[in-house]
Design a protein around this nucleic acid. Structure first.
Lengths: 338, 338
DNA sequence: TTGTAAGCGTTATCAT
DNA sequence: ATGATAACGCTTACAA
């Protein structure tokens, strides 16, 4: 690999001049030299040594994507994260940055990597308040936080979310409108965005004079490697309901499966709804009635906001983006008599 | 961020001594100094500047993962790539490296990134012969090639594949054993691993005295953004068969869907098999009879082999890993009368 | 328009 | 056991 210095020597010019040509600052260089240097650059297929460049210029052109991993699972098995990552990668690259990916559960490790590499910015997903602010105190560059509700108005931080509460509210209202009264809500926890969705569910239930409380919150265990889901328990509990609002397509599909295997007909015996509208939401049978979010868009917006902060550093930048959702009605909810 | 030089000054020692402590070369440093330096390192939460380190030591501790993207699709939407990426990330990190991810279709771009960053090694997926050898000529470091059949015995390259032909052979044999005679093979192309699977199909057909030829190769169009699948055409053609061996779960699920929507019963009217055993293979209905591969393992092995080359540089290293597959019999194939 | 030279934070060689 | 010091390849004042 040829270096700037070598080219400068070859052509009897200074490294500054070569550097200027490389960076397109051709106004500062005589046309003749521009020509000569460009030719050599091309001929020898010059590639900058990015480590040297980063060291000298004190930036890195690296954007880190850090997703929190709970337990031992591979987060990118989940189509949501896969699609998000792909969108982020695409936009990061087309904006001239490079993407480093980490799936971690320890925020101290995150800190180590981003500081050591002097990353220009960060996209995080799945981390919560305490973790984010820990990072934010030590890392003085922009952070985009995807899908968190507890981190608000932190300096240099941008939040990207959905209308989670509203979406769950609408879905629940739709199910109620189909004649259901005994409706449960299912998630693997009741914090952050799952909590917001639960609140939406509760609101719709309350408005309809039904009973939206924790009593009807069904907690599903994530079922990591080795660890079993609590599907038996959920199966038993499900008999108390005619519909279950799930906080993800993933769990909805799991219920669909389990229940049908044990002989309950869906939606005839019980209705089930999902959230996200990942690809297999329309592949399972019955196809899931669900809430669509545009994951691709989430990733693109995340990077765009980050790069905007990085390159324009606008003073009055909006610090929160709430993306819209959309009901997708398929076949997993039955219209029943009141 | 505190630097080595600053620490050295504070303690009136040389940067060499500090550096030695940082790297655990405590034999070369007096216990008293080890103690003093460690304390400061800890107190000031020293983080190395990796760009400086890389520049000085001429390595990068970066492993690149490059997946070829055809058309405009986001490859990580496909659970196969998502899971592979997650496995690679996990192992890369635990081996002390960092992962940079690129989804590209132009091999010249790949070259630019890996050379500029001085990456230590590469994991590629989806690239084919000409592209790989182009890279290999310019990039003098190890490359792991996943799922390619046309690149063999290139220096510094390791191939990782499945028993694709054998797996397809066994699947076809199973379907024949269920009494089917009119069996098609479906893929989106007939090169590389899809071709191997097609060969396995043909072999089983031939052995059974049936007709395994291109005539029974059904080509499905990938259906990228905007572009439509040729499902109408495939639906019509399917009436000539009682079973279709698909080269991926993805397409199998798509057929399941389309055919059922148009009123054909599966497996009663036509049997369908998949390949990969991604998660939704067991979520669709009927659950797919398919060939299981261990994607997680594929990723782990890829990184292990790469790191082994990097750190041990063994002379007699095996250059090909063929991972096993496994038949998974579910509900999408019907046993019929000969 | 061009060149000089300091500096980025490490590593590593070679003395002492 | 410890320390000078050059080197890594680039950017960027500043000088000419």
């Amino acid at each position: 690999m040829i270096t700037i210095k070598e080219i400068a020597n070859m052509l009897n010019v200074s490294t500054t001049t070569v550097s200027n040509v490389i960076h397109g600052k051709t106004k500062e260089v005589s046309p003749a030299n521009v020509e000569r240097i460009r030719k050599v650059l091309d001929e020898y297929d010059y590639m900058p040594n990015i480590n040297a460049r980063n060291l000298a210029s004190n930036r890195s052109k690296i954007i880190g994507m850090v997703v929190k991993v709970n337990g031992k699972e591979n987060p990118f098995k989940d189509q949501f994260f896969g699609e998000l990552l792909g969108a982020v990668e695409d936009r990061v690259r087309s904006r001239g940055y490079n993407l480093m990916v980490y799936a971690l559960n320890d925020v101290r490790q995150v800190q180590k990597f981003i500081l050591s590499w002097n990353m220009d910015g960060l996209v995080t997903c799945g981390f919560v308040e305490g973790e984010i602010s820990y990072l934010q105190e030590r890392y003085k560059k922009p952070i985009v936080i995807i899908d968190d509700y507890d981190t608000n108005d932190l300096e240099r931080c941008i939040n990207i979310r959905l209308e989670d509460k509203k979406a769950a509210y609408e879905m629940t209202k739709y199910v109620i409108g189909c004649g259901h009264k005994k409706i449960a809500f299912l998630a693997d926890n009741n914090v952050n965005l799952d909590h917001q969705r639960f609140l939406g569910y509760c609101q719709a239930m309350d408005e309809a004079g039904l009973f939206g409380s924790e009593e009807n919150f069904l907690k599903i265990c994530p079922g990591n490697r080795g660890e079993k889901n609590n599907l038996d328990e959920l199966y038993e509990k499900s008999f108390a309901y005619t519909a279950i609002i799930c906080s993800s397509d993933y769990y909805a599909a799991m219920l669909l499966n389990t229940f049908q295997d044990r002989g309950r007909k869906i939606p005839d015996d019980i209705s089930i709804t999902g959230f996200d509208d990942v690809e297999y939401a329309s592949l399972v049978r019955p196809a899931l009635t669900t809430v669509r979010q545009d994951i691709q868009e989430k990733g693109l917006v995340a990077v765009d906001m980050l790069v905007k902060m990085l390159e324009e550093n606008p003073k009055d930048m909006e610090t929160l983006v709430v993306l819209p959702t959309q009901m997708v009605i398929r076949d997993s909810v039955k219209r029943i008599n009141g």
